[in-house]
Design a protein around this nucleic acid. Structure first.
Length: 348
DNA sequence: AACTTATGCAACCGCACCATT
DNA sequence: TAATGGTGCGGTTGCATAAGT
């Protein structure tokens, strides 16, 4: 067990130990304990160590027997959950990054609440964490907008306002990083404009759980050029699920299907995902050369409710390009909120 | 400072699916 | 083929803490 892992485990354990000291016995379902002598509720230091040590020596799997053999008075399910969501050394902790937020929004728009599937594309993040993020952050904003998180209106808001803003913030951070690196004498690539492109393919009207083929989502970093060809761009050409070259397994044997670099945007300023052969559809995407977003005429004709919002928000771009821990918390100003709510009320 | 409310998140639950017996 | 056990998923709960009054 390496030191980092130990550190993580110990900090985790310390947290839980304090937690348990406050509500130890009461947190246990007494009746169940009498019935089958199984513990429930928060894990203790000793339990964590038992589980970690056992898995280090014997590996994971067959969780019910693992729980017994390790001397844990827990269900196999509980052990599995504790390991996967918390003790596993490759669990990534800390705030969800802008890139991860963007990816979650994108993947959720196509897969719905299929958290484990979404989590497969965010290395180190668990389905539980992503689910919690969605429920606490995204649904909060749906509530603020007084619309259902599954409604077309909210989906459009995400796609045409929220996600482009995320991209611009990522872009701003990347530019800032490049500037810093450059001033430090580092050899850096030319800072490209980052363009978020989603191949909608009826996304304006897609069903909540509608499946999209994986070659239909694209993140591209370009030089403000968008000709429908990727040939001059340096992005990863691998699909999350059908790439024979991109597939991989992580150290713990989970089914990560792409190397993390495919989705770790800041590493190379290429947060490009997927190969895309539908080049003739690019004109349907939301893209403008200066990285502001406009609606393609075709989509305007389809009745997008948010025509003109971009222009308004460009006037206020500094509002959300500034600092802030969570783009979701400062993404709207009062004008935005008023405007969006007007649009939503008009649509009802 | 005390109290209330909101938020974040670990953990649990029920269900479905699959493999094995 | 049915029963059983293991696994994984999505939804929900409950507690600690933060934020607000």
């Amino acid at each position: 067990m390496d030191q980092d892992f130990k550190g993580i485990v110990m900090s985790t354990i310390t947290h839980d130990y304090n937690y348990n000291n406050q509500s130890d016995d009461s947190s246990i379902d007494q009746e169940d304990q009498l019935m089958d002598d199984l513990r429930r509720g928060p894990w203790t230091v000793e339990e964590d160590l038992l589980l970690v040590n056992y898995i280090a020596n014997h590996g994971e799997g067959r969780w019910n027997s693992l729980a017994r053999c390790a001397g844990l008075k827990r269900t196999g399910k509980s052990c599995r959950l504790r390991w996967l969501n918390y003790l596993r050394p490759d669990v990534r902790r800390g705030n969800i990054t802008l890139e991860e937020q963007l990816l979650i929004l994108e993947l959720h728009s196509r897969w719905g609440n299929r958290w484990s599937k979404i989590a497969q594309h965010l290395p180190g993040r668990t389905d539980n964490e992503i689910k919690n993020y969605w429920r606490t952050r995204v649904q909060k904003h749906a509530k603020q907008l007084q619309c259902d998180v599954n409604s077309k209106q909210f989906k459009d808001t995400m796609r045409y306002l929220w996600m482009p803003r995320l991209v611009e913030r990522i872009q701003a951070e990347a530019a800032s990083t490049a500037t810093t690196a450059s001033s430090n004498g580092a050899k850096v690539a030319t800072a490209n404009s980052t363009n978020y492109m989603n191949q909608p393919n009826n996304t304006m009207n897609n069903g909540y759980n509608q499946e999209f083929s994986d070659d239909q989502y694209i993140f591209q970093t370009s030089n403000n050029e968008f000709s429908g060809s990727f040939n001059n761009q340096s992005f990863v050409t691998a699909t999350p699920e059908n790439s024979s070259t991109g597939g991989s397994s992580d150290s713990m044997g989970s089914n990560t299907q792409l190397s993390s670099d495919c989705y770790s945007f800041p590493h190379s300023n290429t947060y490009n995902i997927a190969q895309n052969t539908h080049t003739n559809n690019y004109s349907e995407t939301l893209f403008s050369p200066n990285s502001n977003y406009y609606y393609h005429q075709q989509q305007q004709q389809q009745g997008s409710e948010f025509q003109g919002i971009d222009q308004q928000q460009n006037n206020n771009s500094n509002m959300w390009l500034g600092g802030g821990e969570d783009v979701l918390d400062n993404i709207w100003n009062s004008d935005d909120m008023w405007f969006i709510q007007q649009q939503l009320s008009n649509d009802l």
